[in-house]
Design a protein around this nucleic acid. Structure first.
Lengths: 196, 196
DNA sequence: GCCCGCTATTAACCTATGTTAATGCTCTCT
DNA sequence: AGAGAGCATTAACATAGGTTAATAGCGGGC
C-alpha cells in the first residue's frame, strides 16, 4: 500500500459513511487528493486569493479568520481532524476568499482542486450528494452562529464556544477564543473572572 | 389551464433556469405544490413546531425571527417574491424549528412537503442538484451575515441591510429593521440621526 | 540560569448601545 | 373633527464592552 493510499484511509471511511460510493466512484474521488503538510502559522488559503483548494484534515488544527482594515483579526471558525476545509462560498460565487485559513498546529491534509470535485459531482450522483451534504452541514453551523450573535451576549457566546469546541480552549490562546466570540482579550478576561 | 397550473408559472421558470429539469421531472415537482394564502401577521411556521413545509413565495413579504425568553423578537431575515422559505435546517437535523416565519403583508405561496421534495431528490438528479443549489445560496447568505456580526458595528450593519434588501426599508416598520440589525429601535433612531 | 518575548490579568477611563419614560406624529375608526 | 393606537424620536441614565497602559506570569533560546 502506497503512502498516499494509506493517508486516505480515514477519508475513505468518512465519505463511505456519507454517500456509499461504489468502488470506481471512490477511486476517482480519492485520486483527486494529494497529501500536504502545513507548519504552525502557515496558511492554507490567504484572504484575497482566488483559491480552488479543498482539503480533508488528517491531523492538526486550523483557524479561519477575517482581517479588518485596522489589522484586527476575527476568528470565524476552527477545524481539526476529520473536517473538510476550503473557501467554498468564495469558490461558488467566483470571488476571492474573504478569509484566511491558517494552521495553529502542525497539520497534515489531503488536498484537492474544487474544479475536480465539481467535475466528479457532475459525473457521479454520489458526489453530487456529497457536495449537498457538506454544504448542508456548513449551512446548519452558520445559521446557529447567526442565532448566537442575534440572541446571546458575549458571556453566553463564550459558553457556547466551550460547548461547540470541547477541549479546544485548552489547545489555543485565549485571544483566539476572544476573537471567535467577537470581543477583545481584555473583555474575555473580565468575563472569565466573573463569579458564576 | 387550471388555477394551480397558472400559479406555478413563475416557479417553473425559476427552477428551469436552475436545473433544467425534463418534462416529467418538472411535472412531478410542480405537483407537490399547493397554493396557500397568508394574511398579514399570519404565520407559515411557528417556533417549536416540527415543520416539514417548504414554499415558494409568489407575492407578499415574510420575516423569520427568533424569540428570546424575555419576549424580545430578533429578525433573522426577510423573504419576498420568488424566494423559497422553510425551516430547512431544523428539518435536516430533525429538530423543531427555532424560529417563526410570519407574513408581514398579505402573501401568496406555493407550499410543498419537504418529505416529498426529498423523495424527488432521491429519484431525479436534477432535484438533488436543486437541493444543493438552494442550500448553497442559504449558506453563502449566512456566511455573509456571520462576517457582518464579527466585523461591523451597528451603523455599518444598518447600511448593509439597506444594500441587501433594497426598497425594503420603506416597506416595513423601523423596529423590524432594528431587530434585524440586532439593536433596539431607540438605537437605530440615534444612528439615523447621526450626521453622515 | 537568565533574558526576552509573548500572553493574561487588572485598572482607569471611554463609547456604543440598552433601558425607561416622556413627547409628538400619523393613521384609522367612528 | 375627535379619540385612540401604534410608532418614531428624544432625553437621562445605566451597563457591556473597547482602549490603553501597567504588571505579572510563563516558556523557550542562549
Amino acid at each position: 500500500m502506497s503512502m498516499q493510499e494509506y493517508s486516505t484511509i480515514v477519508l475513505r471511511q468518512i465519505v463511505t459513511q456519507m454517500v456509499a460510493p461504489d468502488e470506481s466512484a471512490l477511486e476517482s474521488f480519492c485520486n483527486c487528493f494529494k497529501p500536504r503538510k502545513l507548519a504552525a502559522s502557515e496558511c492554507f488559503i490567504e484572504a484575497g486569493e482566488q483559491s480552488t483548494q479543498f482539503a480533508f484534515v488528517n491531523s492538526g488544527l486550523l483557524r479561519f479568520f477575517y482581517r479588518q482594515e485596522n489589522g484586527r483579526e476575527l476568528n470565524k471558525s476552527f477545524a481539526a481532524e476529520n473536517h473538510f476545509i476550503g473557501a467554498y462560498s468564495a469558490y461558488l460565487s467566483g470571488s476571492p476568499a474573504r478569509f484566511t485559513i491558517e494552521a495553529l498546529e502542525p497539520t497534515t491534509l489531503l488536498s484537492a482542486s474544487l474544479d475536480r470535485i465539481v467535475e466528479l459531482s457532475d459525473q457521479y450522483p454520489c458526489w453530487e450528494r456529497f457536495r449537498r451534504l457538506v454544504t448542508e452541514q456548513l449551512y446548519v453551523r452558520k445559521e446557529e452562529r447567526e442565532a448566537e450573535f442575534l440572541l446571546d451576549d458575549a458571556e453566553h457566546r463564550y459558553h457556547l464556544f466551550q460547548q461547540r469546541y470541547p477541549g479546544l480552549e485548552e489547545r489555543i490562546a485565549q485571544y483566539h477564543v476572544a476573537s471567535y466570540i467577537g470581543i477583545t482579550p481584555v473583555s474575555l478576561s473580565r468575563i472569565r473572572k466573573r463569579p458564576k
